[in-house]
Write a protein that binds this DNA or RNA. Structure first.
Length: 869
RNA sequence: GGGCGUGUAGCUCAGGGGUAGAGCACUCGCCUUACAAGCGAGUGGCCGCUGGUUCGAAACCAGCCACGCCCACCA
């Protein structure tokens, strides 16, 4: 580690800080202190006059560890929570995890498979015990990651979707829905995964375009049907045509013989059939197709299942025992042999449903399952957003939400799995059904339904089950409805809409959250999705270890435009790390020079001081508004530029001069003030480094509960802002000259400054320091003369300057300025423009013209001042 | 088929009727005593294409081209 410089200004404090910020040295220590101090603990009874702000965390699945998407999600929530905490709200951020039924069961089954075991080898009880063990290990890992990220969650409220309290909530709402007739059991065609061996809800099926073959089969002389799933014809129980289709009208009501089976099936007329598609005749397999199932219902057709739960053909005959994908070509071959195949099979791209968890092709299957009747629940969920009681951010996401809640099908909630909440329904010896309440015993001798609930069922209760529901707890009173729900847009349907349904239902119409904040997915630097197969996955812990939690958070939030995906890259994390280091060093400099935050702001300050204070107020207001509107990327950008480009590059540099004279004391206070507020504004985003620096700077206990800065309009000072902008232009112009002339940045150059009454005159010392200009001494001979900002800078470059290079440069700038004058002149001379353009625009263009004209004067003067070659 | 959205610097993205922006990358020069994880100065864009509206269009409108995501009972 580099030793800090011993160079100190008068009044310097004893400071022992390394020259590079080392996150690993402070983050763990700070987090522990925060927790033990109880800063994150919510108390519903404390100061009831204060407003409350609550967020329940989207519970990570216990399937593994947190990825970048979680890190983004948590960073956003922590930023919201920390800002509110600083604003004085009673904040509750409730942590927890999700048992993730099918996903976790699959993970543990894979583990077992490595040992050559299946879950059936263990038996249900032992298997579930095994999953609990997995949950313990995986869950511990996740909690550890949350601490590393700096999540300011209230650990005393940690919940799990399958712990006792949440189990009771599940039992309670199930019972209520059951008694209200909103949960029922029915035999229907559902999505079935032949590998997971369970039913799936509609949204657990992912559709993807796949190449298939459309086979046309001649069922009779007059009837040709087309199918991509020839094997299902074994279960056909009708052929359907459109009722108005003249070609087939005479056949409706007749029977034809189904090839390969010898069965006779009827021709029925059904509106569903599109007479324009193919031949206009369609095979009907009620047991294996959702549409056909409905046609079958309408026409009272038998349903013949030809496959078992694993997708193996069970229909008696030559295909029995074949897998469905083997049976397909076999059936086509058999039909071809019989001369039933019309022409050739046609390549055909069509959408195929896959199991979300294992990618197996889903098989529609008729079975007895439990359903939630969503009609009234979905209506309420839609209305809450329509009414404006719940806001969706960004609003462009709302149509998606409506599209789904307004067209929702009944929700299949039973799963043929072992890991999950067991369905609280018991069956009697004679098939009676009972749903006892959570505190009631089922009748003796009855048996419980073997299935478990869809994992999203318990997730849907999360905003109130975590707060103690069904009991009327102080938490529930104080923190429900929650303030914001922060999650990726990918689970808008899975989770958000269902929380809305159950929240409104269970809490008598009170919405589960006021604002829905949707963020995008984390992607790589090419905008590609992170996936193991691409090898572009970044582990948040890796970044935290190498760059720090703050840098990781800053990288994510800096990319988080509303609703947009968030690309991240190694170099950007480095940039964020560099930014934290910049803050560290700026504060280190300030401390070495005695900056402090004691007492009122000095009454006598320079224009430079007034400028930075004015800018600070503006930035404070901007950042506050941006965070209020969930504009994390812009808030980060604003702070980044203020801190780096204004505070560090200009104020600190100019302050160096002030610290060396009678203005030192005032400057120390201003420096302290700027850093104090800046660090507070940054704290919600980068909590660790700001805590470390702020507590050192102020001597206060923590920034976690320090008041959130408010913009002070009295400190706004337009005049000083303009003055410093002028100073910046002057300095930049001379730097440009130095650079173009090949003068080394550190090289001292003697110069004479003629201010000609410029308001910048009092800042000569600062200008000289920034430009490394020394006072003219004996023998001073200006070799270059730069008229700029109303002043003239005469430089002794200790040798001839490259006149040709300078002339080229000035000519180029001059040409640009002249073009500008021409354009502006044309514009301002345009009658239509003058008549119609708004006052402000005209004024702006006049200012542009004036500036360009001034530039021409300046450049011509500079050219004239050039020594002749 | 329906819905939403995108096309701006080499890359990732802001912006949005009135001077084209940022980060990173790139070029040149610097260990200028807070910081080389740094400093200074630069290079780089017919803002997807074609029309229209307008005094003025990268922005608004129409059409086209190319992408992306979501939904859907596409035999």
């Amino acid at each position: 580690m580099t030793t800090p410089s011993n160079e100190r200004g008068p009044g310097a404090a004893e400071v022992d800080l390394p020259t590079q910020y080392q996150p690993a040295d402070v983050e763990g220590r700070l987090y522990e202190r925060w927790v033990s101090a109880g800063y994150f603990s919510a108390d519903p009874g404390r100061d009831p006059g204060r407003p409350a702000y609550s967020i329940v965390i989207p519970p990570p699945n216990v399937t593994g560890s947190l990825h970048m998407g979680h890190a983004l999600d948590h960073s956003i929530q922590d930023t919201l929570i920390r800002r509110r905490r600083m604003q004085g709200y009673e904040t509750a951020w409730v942590p927890g995890m999700d048992h993730a039924g099918i996903a976790t069961q699959n993970v543990v089954e894979r583990e077992l498979a490595k040992e050559g075991l299946s879950r059936h080898d263990l038996g249900r009880e032992a298997f579930v015990e095994r999953v609990w063990k997995w949950k313990g290990e995986s869950g511990g890992r996740i909690l550890g990651q949350m601490k590393r990220l700096g999540d300011s969650v209230d650990w005393s409220r940690e919940a799990f979707t399958m712990d006792d309290a949440r189990a009771r909530a599940v039992r309670t709402i199930f019972k209520r829905l059951f008694d209200d007739g909103l949960i029922h059991r029915a035999e229907r065609i559902i999505n079935w995964c032949p590998r997971c061996l369970t039913a799936l809800s509609d949204i657990e099926v992912e559709h993807a375009e796949r190449d298939g073959e459309l086979v046309s089969i001649r069922y009779s002389d007059e009837v040709v049907v087309a199918t991509t799933r020839a094997e299902t014809m074994l279960g056909d129980t009708a052929v359907a045509v459109h009722p108005d289709d003249e070609r087939y009208r005479h056949l409706v009501g007749t029977e034809i013989e189904l090839p390969l089976t010898g069965r006779r099936i009827p021709v029925v007329a059904d509106e569903h059939v599109d007479p324009g598609f193919g031949t206009g005749a369609v095979k009907v397999t009620p047991a294996h197709d959702p549409n056909d199932f409905e046609i079958g219902r309408r026409h009272d057709l038998p349903s013949i299942s030809v496959m078992d739960e694993r997708g193996v053909i069970t229909a008696a005959g030559p295909f029995q025992g074949l897998d469905r994908f083997e049976a397909r070509p076999a059936v086509v071959a058999a039909l071809r042999e019989e001369g039933r195949i019309v022409k050739e099979v046609r390549p055909y791209e069509h959408s195929v449903g896959h199991c979300q968890r294992c990618s197996t092709v889903v098989e529609p299957r008729v079975s007895l399952q439990w359903f939630v009747k969503v009609g009234p629940l979905a209506k309420a969920a839609g209305d809450a957003v329509r009414d404006g009681r719940v806001e969706i951010h960004p609003p462009e996401m709302a149509p998606r939400y409506f599209e789904w809640v307004d067209n929702m099908h009944d929700w299949c909630i039973s799963r043929q799995l072992w890991w999950g909440h067991r369905i609280p329904v018991w069956y009697g010896p004679d098939g009676e059904t009972a749903c006892p309440g959570p505190d009631e015993e089922p009748p003796a001798g009855w048996t419980q339904d073997p299935d478990v609930l869809d994992t999203w069922f318990s997730s849907a209760l999360w905003p109130f089950s975590t707060l103690g529901w069904p009991d009327d707890t102080p938490d529930l009173k104080r923190f429900y409805p929650t303030s914001a729900l922060v999650t990726g847009y990918d689970i808008l349907f899975f989770w958000v809409a269902r929380m809305m349904m159950f929240g409104l239902y269970a809490m008598d119409g009170v919405e589960p959250f006021k604002q829905i904040v949707l963020h995008g997915m984390v992607r790589d630097q090419n905008g590609k999705k992170m996936s193991k197969s691409f090898g572009n996955v970044v582990d948040p812990l890796d970044w935290i270890e190498r760059y720090g939690a703050d840098a990781t958070r800053f990288t994510l939030l800096r990319g988080a435009n509303p609703g947009g995906d968030v690309p991240v890259a190694e170099e950007w994390a480095q940039g964020s790390r560099n930014f934290c280091n910049k803050l560290f060093n700026a504060t280190r400099f300030a401390l070495l020079n005695g900056a402090h935050t004691r007492g009122d702001l000095p009454g006598e300050i320079t224009a430079v001081d007034a400028w930075i204070l004015s800018r600070l107020q503006r930035v404070t207001g901007e950042v506050d508004a941006l965070l209020e509107g969930f504009e994390f990327a812009k808030a980060c950008e604003t702070l980044y530029h203020f801190a780096w480009d204004e505070v560090c590059d200009w104020y600190v540099e100019l302050a160096k001069v002030q610290l060396g004279d009678e203005r030192a004391e005032a400057t120390r206070r201003i420096l302290g003030e700027v850093l104090d507020k800046l660090l507070r504004l940054l704290h919600p985003v980068i909590p660790f480094v700001t805590e470390e620096l702020w507590t050192t700077l102020t001597g206060a206990e923590t920034v976690v509960t320090a008041p959130w800065p408010a913009a002070d309009e009295d400190l706004r000072d337009k005049e000083s802002e303009e003055l410093v902008e002028s100073l910046q232009r002057l300095v930049t112009e001379v730097r440009r000259f130095r650079s173009d002339q090949g003068l080394k940045p550190g090289q001292k150059v003697a110069a004479a400054l003629e201010w000609n009454g410029s308001p910048l005159a009092p800042h000569e010392e600062g200008v000289r320091a920034l430009l490394r200009l020394t006072a003219p001494e004996d023998g001073f001979a200006a070799t270059a003369s730069l008229p700029v900002e109303g002043a003239v800078v005469r430089l002794d470059t200790a040798g001839a300057i490259d006149v040709a290079a300078e002339r080229r440069r000035l000519d180029k700038d001059l040409a640009a300025a002249r073009k500008e004058v021409e354009q502006m002149g044309k514009k301002l001379g345009n009658e239509a423009f003058m008549a119609k353009a708004p006052e402000a625009v005209v004024a702006k263009n006049r200012a542009r013209l004036a500036q360009a004209e001034a530039d021409i004067v300046r450049l011509e003067a500079q050219l004239a001042a050039l020594p002749s070659a």
